[in-house]
Nucleic acid binder design. Structure first.
Lengths: 356, 356
DNA sequence: GTCCTCCATGTAATCGATTTCATGAGGTTA
DNA sequence: TAACCTCATGAAATCGATTACATGGAGGAC
C-alpha cells in the first residue's frame, strides 16, 4: 500500500508538502496541490490513520460499551450515538458487555489500549476497580443510561419517575388496584430508580404494594417470564403486571400467552421501555417510551465537550407514557383505534423509527 | 499516560525487554519478568495499540459494514460476528450503511484508513468503483448475506429457495391459491434470489402469479405497508401476503391491522426472516428463519482464513420454514398451541435468543 | 542594485511500540 | 586455561505520518 513517501516521490515534492495537502494547510500552491492530488489518485493512496494517530495522539474514535446488543433499546442507542459521532467526524467502536462486569472491563481495556478519544459506558452492576481507576485518572468518560454511585463522572440518563407516576394514575383511573412490578436488578441505577418511582407512585395514589408484588428481574427475557409465572401463581394474583424493560415484557407476554390468559381481561400488562412491535401485539401494549435517540445524541455531545476541553454537565431526559390498550379501554376515550397517548402524541406508532 | 520507556526505566531494564515481556517472549528471566510486571502495575501502564499496529502492520481489528442497524436481522448478525471475532482476539468496528452506497463507501474508506485486517461487507445495491477497486487490490474482503455480481469475492449467504418452496407447499396445503409477494429490491442479491425462488416455487406448484401480486419493496417498513395497501386494494386481493423481510412484515402487519382485517381469516401473512416477537403477535406469524448467527460466525472464520493466508471458500447456509398460525390452522396438526415447525423444530420459539 | 520580507517548500525529529543484531556474562568441554 | 556456546539483555533502526525549524527564491522598498 502506497505511503506518503511514495506520493511525495511521484509528485516530486517532499513528504511535508504531501502532509500539508492532506491536512488542508493553505500554504500550498494550487499547482503543487494538484500535482499531489494527481499522485494520490495515481497510486491509490490512503492515509494511514494508525500512523497519524500515533503522531497526533488523537484517534477520532469514541468507544461505546452497551449492556446487551440484542436489546433493541441499546441498539437504538448505538444507532443514535453512531449518527451523532459521525456528524462530528468520529468513528465509534461498540463493545457489548452482555451485562457482565468482566466483559465490560475487557472492552474498557481494549478501548483504552486503542486510545479512543472518549469513552461512553452504560455501566453494568459492579463498580469495578478498572472503572474507578479510569474515572480517577480523569480520562474522558461519560455514563450513559445508567450511573454508578460514588463515582464522579458526568452522565446522561432518563428521568422515569414522572412517567411512572402518570402510568400508575392511568391504571388507577381504569379501576386497577393490585399492581405488580417486575423490576430490573437493584444493582443497576435504572433498576433502582424505576423501583423507587413505582413505590413512590403507588404510595402517592394510596395503593398498597405487598412484597410478593415486587419481583426482582434482571432485564432479560427469562426473568420476565419467571417473574410473571410467580405473580400469576399467587393466591391473589395482580390485576396488572408492570415490567421494568422491553425484554422482560417479552418474557411476561410469553408466560401470559402460554397460560391462555387474555390481556387485559385476565391480567393487564404495561411495559417500561417501548419498542416498535408493541403496537402490533393484540392488544397493543401500554408502555413508557424513553427518549433513546436523544439520550445517545446528548451523550455524544457531552463526551465531545470533555474531549475538547469544554465542561460537561450531567443531564436527565424525561420518559413519556404511551397509553395503548393492554391495560383496558381508557374511560376518557373511544375504542382501541382511538387509543391515544397521555402525552403529546404516541411516539410508538407508525413509521417514526424508519429513516429516509 | 505511561510509555514503554517509563516502564523500562522504572524496572531498570531496556525497552526491548519490556516489549519481550509484553509479547510473552520466553527468553526473559522469571525475575526480570516480575520486575517488569511490577513496574507496569505501579505505573498503570497500558500498551499503546496504535504504536504497536504501526510497527506490526496488524490491527487485530475487523470491519463490518451492515445494511441497517435498526433491522434486528443485522443486529443479530453483528452480535454473532462480534462474538466469533472476540474468540479469535479481534475487535470489530461496525459501520451502518443505512442501505446507501455512499454511506457504505464512507465506511469502506474509513476502515481502510484505519487499516483493519479484514473487511466484512453486506453490500448495498450498487457496485461502487471503490468496492471494485478494493476487491481487485486483493485486500481481505468477504461478502456477508448479500453478494455482488461480477466481483470475485468469497461470500457467505443464505440458501432460501428450499424453504420458500416448502412455504408455498404449506400454503397450498392450507387451501390458499392467490399468494402475493412483497419483494426486496431487485438490486440486492437477496431480493432477487427470494423473488426468483418465489416465482419458481409458485410455478412448481402450478400456481399463477399475476404481475400485480408482485409488489416491489425495499426492505423497509414503509414499503411493506404501502405494498400491503396496494395488494388489499386490488379488485381481487390475495389470500396470502408473503413479505420479503421482517421490517416489511412489520409494515404489512400495520396496514392489515389499520384496516381492521383479521389474520388469517381475511388475509394470511407469512414472513421471510423471523424475529423473536413474531411468536407474540396474535396469531403468531409463520416465517422463514435464517441461520443468522451461524452466518456471522462463518463469515468471521472465512475472513480470518483470508487474513491469515489460508484459502476461503464461499458458503450458503439453508433457511428453515417455521410454521405458526398466521396462514391458518395446519390440517395436519392440532390447535394454535400445537403449531409446529415443518423442520427440525421451531427456532423462533422460547428463549433461544437469550444468552447465559 | 542591494537588502529585507514573505512564503512555499524541504529537512529532520518525533510519536511508542517491535525486532534485528550485537554484546557480554557464565557455563561447558577439551 | 583456552576456546566455544548459550542465553539474557541492550542499542538502534523501523513503521508512516505530523510539525518545528531551516532555507532559498521572488518581489518590494529604498
Amino acid at each position: 500500500m502506497a505511503r506518503i513517501k511514495d506520493v511525495a516521490a511521484h509528485a516530486g515534492v517532499s513528504v511535508a508538502t504531501v502532509s500539508r495537502v492532506l491536512n488542508d494547510n493553505p500554504s500550498v500552491t494550487e499547482e503543487t496541490r494538484n500535482r499531489v492530488y494527481a499522485a494520490m489518485t495515481a497510486l491509490n493512496y490512503r492515509p494511514n490513520a494508525v500512523a497519524r494517530s500515533l503522531r497526533t495522539e488523537a484517534t477520532r474514535t469514541l468507544g461505546l460499551i452497551i449492556g446487551d446488543i440484542l436489546n433493541p433499546f441499546f441498539t437504538e442507542l448505538a444507532r443514535a450515538v453512531e449518527d451523532e459521532a459521525r456528524l462530528a467526524g468520529y468513528t465509534v467502536i461498540i463493545g457489548n458487555a452482555d451485562e457482565r462486569a468482566d466483559e465490560q472491563d475487557h472492552y474498557v481495556r481494549t478501548l483504552l489500549e486503542r486510545r479512543v478519544d472518549g469513552l461512553l459506558i452504560c455501566p453494568t452492576a459492579e463498580v469495578t476497580s478498572l472503572i474507578e481507576e479510569v474515572a480517577r485518572a480523569g480520562r474522558p468518560l461519560v455514563f450513559l443510561d445508567r450511573t454508578l454511585p460514588g463515582i464522579e463522572v458526568p452522565s446522561v440518563r432518563v428521568e422515569s419517575a414522572a412517567a411512572i407516576g402518570e402510568l400508575i394514575g392511568h391504571l388507577k383511573a381504569l379501576g386497577h388496584r393490585r399492581i405488580a412490578f417486575i423490576s430490573g436488578p437493584a444493582t443497576l441505577s435504572t433498576g433502582r430508580e424505576r423501583t423507587e418511582a413505582f413505590r413512590a407512585a403507588m404510595a402517592a395514589h394510596g395503593l398498597a404494594v405487598p412484597p410478593e408484588y415486587l419481583e426482582a428481574g434482571d432485564f432479560r427475557e427469562g426473568s420476565g417470564r419467571a417473574g410473571a409465572a410467580r405473580l400469576l401463581d399467587l393466591p391473589e394474583p395482580p390485576e396488572v403486571i408492570f415490567t421494568g424493560d422491553n425484554l422482560m415484557t417479552l418474557g411476561a407476554l410469553g408466560e401470559i400467552r402460554a397460560r391462555g390468559l387474555r390481556i387485559p381481561r385476565d391480567v393487564a400488562l404495561a411495559s417500561f421501555d417501548d419498542v416498535p412491535w408493541f403496537v402490533h401485539v393484540d392488544p397493543a401494549i401500554t408502555a413508557i417510551a424513553q427518549p433513546t435517540a436523544e439520550l445517545g445524541r446528548a451523550a455524544v455531545r457531552m463526551i465531545l465537550n470533555r474531549v475538547e476541553g469544554r465542561p460537561a454537565e450531567s443531564a436527565a431526559l424525561p420518559a413519556q407514557l404511551v397509553v395503548r390498550t393492554s391495560c383496558g379501554e381508557t374511560p376518557y376515550g373511544g375504542g382501541p383505534a382511538a387509543a391515544r397517548g397521555a402525552g403529546a402524541g404516541d411516539p410508538g406508532q407508525g413509521d417514526e423509527r424508519s429513516r429516509s
